[in-house]
Design a protein around this nucleic acid. Structure first.
Lengths: 336, 336
DNA sequence: GCCTGAGAATGAAACGTTACACAACTTCTG
DNA sequence: CAGAAGTTGTGTAACGTTTCATTCTCAGGC
């Protein structure tokens, strides 16, 4: 019924709407951007938009306004549940704010991280939320705001993380409270690279404060490093495994250790209690995988999004540590 | 040392490069797009680009060429490991092809699905890869190619999935081969909505062919439907649970059923054998969560990306079912 | 030596928006 | 009722690219 004038091809543009409504381009623009405009004009434009099925072309708009409503998300991988859940929360938060998420997977590769950061700039994203390891920030100019998660870079790049130090403390406090006499930390070495590495110092701090003995076994490679398990096996065989409480830097690690101990007939939590970190509820079982320190995932995502979207206002605290909580779930005596 | 002429603000543009190199805009464009150009000119332009740190503005380019090198990814959620792994694979595949992934989370909400599809059009993505349930396709014009995963819509929208029917058959065949006499399928009802629902018919087909008895208990709500577990409990209590082989529509369901059976002291795999579907290796344990039918995730991602990027050439088979494999992992007798 | 044609760089016109200066019209005010 | 002030819509110039018709240059052929 409504035979619009044949266009060469493709979607209708503002020009078509203006012609259809018998108004100027500027008026159409105002209606679209919700700038007050006379009632009659507004109605005419709106019905023309409906009739033609007009939709704003975000690329033209982005070119003109230099604002794209896109944020790049840099993640090492989505196979790690923490990253997957975080990405889910970040994306949903961005969408609520009427932003789009451009997802980039870096595979823990510094070169890829740098490349993605540059790609973000080229794509004119309004900001970047990055969970990275060693990007080369020298190559990145400061034309777009960057917010990191779990990684505090020198300079003024804001960082969002859970309160890792406090999380470590909390784990130690709980284990002591539950009767442990000799504790073990399984995590990264003493050198602090990311915020997550502060779990160890927090743990050790609380151990000292409580006057309880502790030791550490360090993962040196990435998550695929298995040397740590051989070390534990060794100690168990030699009778040198005299710990009754273990804090693991992540839940997946806690699960692996749990399996390993059970392999040797060591009862958890009766003989050894284990606390992990992350607190991602397992999709399969609907349960926490182990007793754990829970990161406030939704809060972290929301905070990161807010920081990156309001980066210009720079009333931002540079390093945001959000509160963690302890949850008992099977690998500590309080869950019996 | 190199004091470039002060620009009003922001990144250098092609115009700046042209001025710096003493050539025309067109020449710069050619160099950038790798269109042959005289050696001297090329060198002059390239060093000007390096000197100024010029980067293409993808928004200007997109406006002009109507090609954005972006593909929208519609996912219900990233908390389901299958979706997370799939998104990971899709994103990596897209990046290899020099495309960006715009991630959209729909939360299984048809309205959100429709909205995201429209948003994709407005954002001028070059295509959409969608794992959706009930979007309102009427509102979507065919200005951009859509490829679905696990969901075959009437019309000419190509669909990529694992060979769900064959997967169901395979599960039944294996259970029979391992000595099962009475089988059970836990999955969706007989109505086929998505490709995944064909696991049931495949299973039943193989059961009939093998002449072995089978039954079905259907999940009616989404993954959060717990009625099915009550039903199983009921049957166990009544002594009406006489199955020795169960095929579950997903690994997470198999895990839950496994836990439930163990709760009642039923031995797996000795008394009852279980096979799931998906085959996502658990990050925590590094193992398959149960004996399972493995979907060819990487292949599916690659296929979906190829289909969406070459949609115009339309030599595309409309419904692509990729081969599945069986893996034994603890819940069947062949893993003892 | 003139003409033709190939090859190569140029310059202007888009692409679909927004923003701003301006014009046209109301509405007050004294 | 003239003029100022306030509204409200119009038209045009960008934004940073690509594209294509055009111009320029230089050989080669007759």
């Amino acid at each position: 019924m409504c035979h619009a004038v044949l266009k060469k091809s493709g979607q209708p543009t503002m020009k078509d709407v203006a012609r259809e409504a018998g108004v100027s381009l500027g008026t159409v623009s105002k209606v679209i951007n919700e700038i007050p405009v006379g009632e009659t004009y507004k109605n005419r434009v709106e019905s023309a938009i409906r009739k033609l099925g007009y939709r704003v072309n975000n690329y033209a708009r982005g070119l003109k306004t230099n604002k794209t409503n896109c944020v790049a998300l840099l993640m090492p991988s989505l196979t790690h549940p923490f990253f997957a859940y975080l990405t889910d929360a970040l994306t949903e938060s961005l969408m609520r704010h009427d932003y789009r998420a451009i997802l980039m997977i870096t595979n823990y590769d510094p070169e890829a991280e740098t490349k993605c950061l540059l790609l973000g700039q080229q794509n004119k994203v309004d900001g970047v939320i990055a969970l990275t390891y060693h990007p080369n920030l020298d190559e990145i100019d400061d034309s777009i705001p960057i917010v990191t998660i779990d990684r505090h870079f020198p300079g003024r790049i804001p960082c969002v993380s859970s309160d890792n130090f406090r999380g470590g403390e909390l784990a130690a406090e709980k284990l002591v409270e539950l009767g442990c006499k000799k504790l073990l930390y399984l995590g990264t070495g003493p050198e602090i690279l990311g915020e997550a590495d502060k779990r160890g110092p927090g743990f050790e701090n609380a151990c000292r404060k409580a006057g309880v003995g502790y030791d550490r076994i360090s993962l040196h490679g990435g998550d695929s490093d298995t040397a740590i398990f051989d070390l534990i096996r060794e100690r168990i065989k030699n009778g040198a495994f005299d710990f009754d409480g273990i804090f693991c830097k992540a839940d997946w690690l806690a699960r692996k250790v749990l399996n390993l101990l059970q392999e040797y007939g060591i009862q958890v939590p009766e003989e050894v209690q284990i606390i992990g970190y992350d607190g991602i509820i397992d999709y399969a079982t609907g349960l926490y995988p182990c007793s754990t320190i829970v990161q406030p995932l939704a809060m972290m995502a929301e905070a990161a999004v807010n920081l990156v979207l309001h980066a210009d206002e720079d009333l931002a605290p540079v390093n945001l540590c959000l509160p963690v909580t302890y949850v008992s779930a099977g690998t500590t005596k309080d869950s019996l």
